[in-house]
Structure formats: C-alpha cells, structure tokens
Design a protein around this nucleic acid. Structure first.
Lengths: 347, 347
DNA sequence: ATGAAAGCGCTAACAG
DNA sequence: CTGTTAGCGCTTTCAT
C-alpha cells in the first residue's frame, strides 16, 4: 500500500505540485476550476498532508507542550482542558504528558519536546533545586511557563497562593478551638509545600500561638503519603484534633487512614481537604476544602504563554490566584482543655 | 537565535554530515575518535535532532495514538499507563487524547493522527453506527484496535464483559429480594450499554421474573446523567429499591442524587457502582462495585496492537475480560412485600 | 570507515 | 494565476 503524496494529487488533478500545495493550504490565488480539480483529487485519493514534512519545511511545529504531575487529578484535567481550548483556537496543538513527579521522566519529556520543536511549554517540576532539571529547562529554546513553582530563570510564573489558603484553613480551625493541627504536605523543595507551611505558621503567629514542629509533615503530596502520615499521627498519644491535607489529591489517603482508626469526623477529628472533588462533596460528612478555579487558571496560563510566544523579550510576569475556603461539615468545635478531648470520643 | 542542525555539528566536529548522522543514530561502524568528536560537538552546541525531519526521511513516525473518552477517569488512566509502558519499551511514543465522547472531536483526532502518520491506534468511539466515523476509521492506513466497542471492519477488539458484570450484580440484588432494580447506562448504539442491558435481562430471565422496561435507562454514561436519572427515578411513587450505575464514572452522580433525596444507603436504596474508585471505597457506607483489572487490559491492548503492527495480515482477534463483583456495604436485603417498603423509609 | 549526494514530502520564492 | 525549483533537516545509499 503505497503512501500517497502531494505529487500524486498534482498528477491526478493535472496541475503542478505548487498549485496543489496552494489549494491544500487555502491560498487565495487559485482559480476556481483548478481548486475543484485538486479538491476532487484529494478526495478520491484520500490524501492527507504529512505533518512532519510540513513542519520541516515551515520550520515550526505549532505545538505546545504541557507537563503535569498526574493528568488523572480531575482539577488538573479542567486546567488542561481550559488551556487546550485557547491553544486550539490560536492554531496550536497540545501535547499533554504526565511526569509522575519523577525526575528521569521529566527530563525525558523535556528532551522529547525539544526534538519535537514545540513552541512553548507549561510545566511544573518535581524539584525546584535540582540542577539537572534547571539545566535542562534553561537549554530549552522555547518559552516556558512555570505553574505553581518558584524557580530561577526568565520564566513566566503562575501560582496558587497556597500560603493564603492554608492560612485561611488554620485560622478557621484555631477559631474552632483546635490547637493540634496536622499539616501533611510535600517536600520543601517545592513551592506549594513551602507556601503551605508558611501560611500555617503565619496563622499561628497571628494568634501568638506556638507551632509544634512535629505536626508539620512534609513527606509527600500523594494519597499514599497522606495515608501514612495520617495513620502515624493518629496513633500517637497526643494526636492532632484536625488535619489539613496539603496536596491536591491527598484526601483519599487521609480519609482511608481515619476510617481505619474508627475515629469519627468531625467529632474526633476535623479535616480540611487540599482541593475540591466528588469525594469531598459526597463523603459523610461532606469535607471542607480549599478550592480554586482551575479553569480560570488554565486559561490564564495559556493566554500568558501565547503572549510570550508573540513577544519573547518582554519582562517575565508572575501571577498568583488565591484559593477559597469552602466550609462544609468536616470541622467541629473542640473543647479547649486537652484532657476533655478523649472523653468526647466516648460520647 | 539560530537553530542548530546536524550540519553545524558536522562542521564543529570536522566530519561529514553522514558521520554525524551515524553517531547520532548509534551506528556501529564509526571510529572511536570520530565518535567522541561528534559527541563533544553535540554537547557544546546543545544539538537535538529534529524529530519531524527524522520522520520525513525515515518514512515512519514510531508513534501510537490512543483515544479515550476522558483521561480523567482514574481507571482509564491506569489503562493508558499500562499500555504506555509496553509501547515505550517497544520504541514507540504514545499520543494520548480525549474525545469527550463527541463525534466532531473524534473525527478531528482521527484526522490529526493520519497527518502524524501514527503506526497504530487504540480507540473507543462515540457511536458504533455512525457512518462518518466508520468511514473515517476505514480510511486509516494503520491498524486500529477497538476498545470496548463492537464495530464492523477488520479491527482487533478488546472488550469488557459487561453482560457478565451486570448479570452478577442483578443476580446478587435479586437474591437479596430486590425486584425493582434501576439500571442507568448509556445509549444502545454502544456495546457496553447493550451488553449491560443484556446482562440485566438475562439475570431476570434466569429467575423467571419480568423486566420493567421503565427501569432500564439508556440516557448516557456520564455522572450528570447518572444524577438526573437517579433523581427522576427516586421521585416516582413506585421507586426502585436498588440502582446499578452502568457506567465507569457515573457513581458520583448517582450518590449526589440519593443524597439530595435524604434516602439512606442501603436501608432505603441499594447501590452498585460501575467501576471501583476512591469514592466507592470511602463512601459511607462503602459502595459495592463491578471491578476490572484495567492495568492488565491496557497491557493486553498494547501487546495485541504491537503484534498487529508486526503481522498486518493475520486474522483479527477478539478478547473479553470479565469483571468481578466486589461486595461492600451498599446493598441490603429487602422486605418482599412492596407495600412495606414505604414504611421502612420512616423508620 | 568515511564523504558525497540523492531525496523523504512538503512549502515558498521566483519567473513567467 | 501557475509551474518550476530550491531546500527545510535529516538518513541512507553509493562510491571510495
């Protein structure tokens, strides 16, 4: 089965290759009779232009890359979808990849994107301090928009204001009388974890309360870590009275661990989720969460990157979106004297 | 910023373009001294071969395409990941796209894949009977593996045995005394919906019971439809005593609708989910589900497609995987006399 | 083992 | 408006 090329089309339509090409690319200056003949030839032969050849010749790919940690996370999907809509409208295709938060995979994806000569990249990174990754990013000859990270280099940056989010959550819990609040989040070499810890400390400081460093855990963002951290914390004699899931998809892990201890939410333990989800909404009781408008954020990223592609040498920009605390039924007021807490469990 | 090409590398290393190319492609017959010089040049110049040019010249893309309805669905993500692992190992890249179950988008994706000259495709389809889609699929000049669909054409087919799954679910519910069982699933122009309905009827027939056609709903697979169908059904005087979510991600919608009516699971209404999820596991009570090994299925699809690429003219094959009913706490035995049911609601 | 040169499928510049 | 032709970046003969 021989591949049909533009040459076959030209021959079939009895025109030159150039004319065939013009028709394919919708050039205006083609006589109607020729155009119809070429179109007919395309149809009968079932010709589809070879994209790779077009890219080589045109010297540009009209593709944008995007790297997320895990496309499965529904909020990230809405982020990607919003960005995709804008890119398609602007004539760009979108290559979507998951890094699984692994350095080797991230490097591999950057390499492939270079090979593909993409014209822009929206990405997070598994580490802000890793020199290999920083090197690989700086070797890129297309603009990079950093999402929710804090890195050196001339990148545009769009972030979620996690400090504000966790600050709202902790302030709320403190007002309910909670003092032992577990924050489980990712490693401090990544901005969202640092910001959450900062927001946590700020909220305590505002009330002139001390932070128990043992309650600030930075082991990882994923659900499995959420499970482990929660399980360990709940087994301790002086267990926390509230937990903040400091990651976008940690909530399942946290809830599984709580379930395993037979503690009751919110009577025995209050919970605030790191992002909204069906699970948070449908859990019994419904879980209070920090929520962002990911669709808006995705659209903004796309817009900024498109502008950057147009104007490569303007100043890098930086933007932050503040989350909103959605109060549902997963946080209860707590008796102030710590000794009482154990009793309330019996009730 | 000038793009560096293999020509620059050759010049820098003082070798011919051919030699540079041989080094880049790891050809064995290059003298060590030349090789090191080329490698050094590549490094200092930061050269990365242009993938599009390679594809044009080699006449093949070494890419596989995959179209799923919605990559967000976690089970589909594990399906894709398993397939991806095998493809990468075999030297193929994977282009992952969501069709959103929309015909226009599906056609557009097929068109793009043709332009990209992919060498194989794993896909579902939004309609098995649509002639445009069938036409577009048959115009493809690379092998297509149909996932969970029933279409004409010389495609390999891998399916989930939904008939068996729903049959298990209904048989189980009948054994608990349920008679009014709502099955909410997708339109009958798609295999998984047809198969589920068939499994439903078979289970009733096996007990010599009649099916109430009003309880077999085929409006759609998505969560929003699950919500609507459930809400409507629960408002009727003679409401069902059990609901089967006949779709991979319908459960959130079903549960939301139940929540809105203040009915209690499983006392007032029993529920079986169409696929396993964190939500099913963590809901209160935990939801019984039909479960498949999506990782295994994804790997199988990849393997079959790779074999098909090797041997284009062997007989198309067909495979089905049976789901397993995972019993949790969302189904209760029901009092047989229908009149009693309303009372139990007050209790 | 290496270099020169042809050419993959296509677009665009040029001449007519 | 159309045809001819150079050449995008690369791989792969074909000589040497």
């Amino acid at each position: 089965m021989k591949r049909i090329t533009i040459r076959d089309v030209a021959k079939q339509a009895n025109v030159s290759i150039g004319t065939a090409s013009r028709v394919i690319n919708g050039a205006p200056n083609v006589e109607a009779a020729y155009r119809t003949r070429v179109l007919a030839a395309i149809k009968t032969l079932g010709f589809v232009p070879n994209r790779a050849a077009q890219e080589v010749r045109k010297g540009r790919s009209r593709e944008i890359g995007i790297i997320v940690r895990d496309i499965t996370t529904p909020v990230l999907a809405s982020f990607v979808r919003a960005a995709q809509d804008l890119f398609e409208e602007a004539g760009y295709g979108l290559l979507i990849c998951s890094s699984d938060n692994r350095k080797d995979r991230e490097l591999e994806l950057l390499r492939r994107f270079r090979q593909r000569r993409i014209e822009g990249l929206i990405t997070t990174t598994s580490s802000e301090v890793d020199t290999d990754l920083a090197q690989a990013r700086n070797d890129l000859d297309f603009p990079v928009l950093m999402f929710d990270r804090e890195v050196d280099g001339a990148h545009d940056i769009v972030q979620v204001d996690h400090a504000s989010g966790v600050n709202q959550a902790v302030t709320y819990l403190l007002s309910l009388g909670h003092r032992r609040i577990l924050l489980s989040t990712g490693p401090l070499n990544i901005y969202p974890a640092r910001a959450r810890v900062e927001g946590y400390k700020r909220a305590f400081a505002a009330q002139r309360l001390d932070v128990d460093p043992a309650l600030v855990r930075t082991a990882g963002f994923d659900a499995a870590t959420g499970f482990r951290e929660t399980a360990v914390a709940l087994e301790r004699a002086n267990r926390p009275s509230a937990i903040i899931a400091g990651g976008i998809d940690m909530l399942p892990g946290v809830l599984k661990a709580i379930r395993a201890t037979h503690l009751h939410v919110p009577r025995d333990i209050s919970v605030i989720g790191g992002a909204d989800s069906d699970l948070a909404l449908l859990a019994e009781p419904a879980i209070s969460v920090l929520r962002w408008n990911f669709t808006e954020i995705g659209a903004t990223c796309a817009r900024m990157l498109l502008e950057r592609i147009e104007a490569a040498d303007t100043e890098p920009r930086r933007l932050a979106f503040a989350p909103e605390l959605v109060v549902r039924d997963s946080c209860a007021a707590v008796v102030i004297a710590p000794a009482q807490k154990r009793e309330s469990r019996q009730k």
